[in-house]
Amino acid sequence: MNDKIQASFIDIYDKIEGWVTALIENLPNIIVAIIVMVVSYYAARFVNKWVVKLASKRIPQDSISNLIGRISATAVVLLGLFLALGAMDLSKTLNTLLAGAGISGLVIGLALQGTLSNLLSGVVLSFRKKIEIGNWIETNGYSGEVIDINLNSLVLKEFDNNLVVIPNKTIIENPFKNYSLTTRMRIVVSCGVGYESDLELVKKLTKEAIGELYKDDDDSEIEFYYTEFGDSSINFICRFWVDAQNAKNKLDAKSVAIRAIKTKFNANDINIPFPIRTLEFNNKLNINSPQK
C-alpha cells in the first residue's frame, strides 16, 4: 500500500517537474507572446481611433464609423493572437482556431443572413455619394427626406411628417430617384382649351404666363406642344425649367404655373372646358308611350 502511494507521489512529482521544465524552456517564447498580445492590444486601440476619425470624414453616420473602427481593431487583435500562438509553437492550436472560426462564421452567416445583408448594405450606402443625409429621394413607393442611414435601415421623412423605415437591402436592390443631385428640374403642366379657341393665342399666352414667373439666365426655352383632340378640348402640355431640389419645390412650381395660366386665360376669355354629358329625353321607348 505504501509502495503505491509512494509511486503516485513520484508520478505527480515527475509531472510537475516536467511542467516546470517546459515552462522554463518556453519562458522566452511566453514572454514574446505576452509582449505581442500587449502590443497588439494598444495597437488595436490606436487603429480603432484612427480609423473612426478617418471614416467620420467621409461617413456622416457615427454608428458606421464606429463599426468600421471595431472591425479594424478586431483584425489587429486576431493578428496578434495568431502571432503569439506561433511564437509559442502552438501550430496545432492555431489550426484548430482557424478551423473553428471558419465553421462558426458559416453557421453565424446562415443564421443572420438577412441582418448581415442589411448591415453590409448600410455600409455600402454610407459610402455612396449619390444618396446622403438631407437628400430628397423616391424609392419603393415612398418619397421623402433622408434623415438617417444606420446599420440596418434608411429612414425617410415624408411630406406629412411621417417616418418611413426601409431596410438597407431594399434600397440597394431597387432603383431610387434622388431629386437633390441636380439643382434644376423640368416641370410639365397639362391643360386643355375649347375647340373655338385661337390656338396661336393660347400658345402665346401660356408662354407669357410662364415667362413672367421664371426668367432663366440661361435662356432655356419654354416648350409648348399640342398633344391631342380630346373629348371636349384640345389638350396641350407646357414644359419649363425651375430651380428645385426636392418634390415639394416641384409641386410648388407646378401649382404657381397653373394659377398663372388660369389667370392669363381668364383675362383673355380663353375657355378651359370640362367634360360635358348630354342627355336626350326624346326616347321613343318611354314606358308611358302607348303599346301597339
Results as ranks from 00 to 15, higher is better:
L83A: 11
S255G: 05
V165Q: 13
S180H: 10
K130A: 10
D252E: 11
D160P: 05
K57S: 07
K15R: 14
V124I: 13
N29R: 13
A99Y: 12
M1G: 09
F46M: 09
N140M: 15
K177Y: 08
N48A: 11
Y225C: 05
R58I: 13
S233P: 05
S91T: 13
I131C: 02
T139K: 08
E200P: 03
E25Q: 14
I149H: 02
A101L: 14
M37L: 14
K49H: 14
V123Y: 05
V76H: 02
G109S: 15
W136M: 10
L201T: 07
T278Y: 15
I171E: 04
L201D: 01
E25D: 12
L213D: 11
L120C: 07
I237D: 14
R239W: 04
A33I: 05
Y142T: 07
L90D: 02
Y13T: 06
I237V: 13
N48L: 14
D218C: 04
D89T: 06
N29S: 14
S63R: 11
K207S: 08
F224K: 05
P60H: 04
D11Q: 11
I261E: 00
E145A: 06
G80P: 09
N288A: 10
L154T: 15
L98M: 08
L285A: 12
Q291S: 15
S121Y: 13
R259E: 06
S197L: 00
A84S: 08
G211W: 01
L251F: 11
S232A: 08
K203W: 00
W136S: 14
L116A: 03
L81C: 10
A84Y: 08
Y225F: 11
L106W: 09
S190P: 00
N66Q: 12
V38S: 04
L83F: 08
N29V: 03
N282Q: 05
F240A: 00
V36M: 08
E208P: 01
Q245A: 08
Y225P: 00
S121A: 15
A22V: 07
N283H: 08
K53W: 10
N66E: 14
W50R: 08
T74N: 12
S220D: 14
M1Y: 09
N152F: 12
Y226K: 09
N268F: 03
G134Y: 10
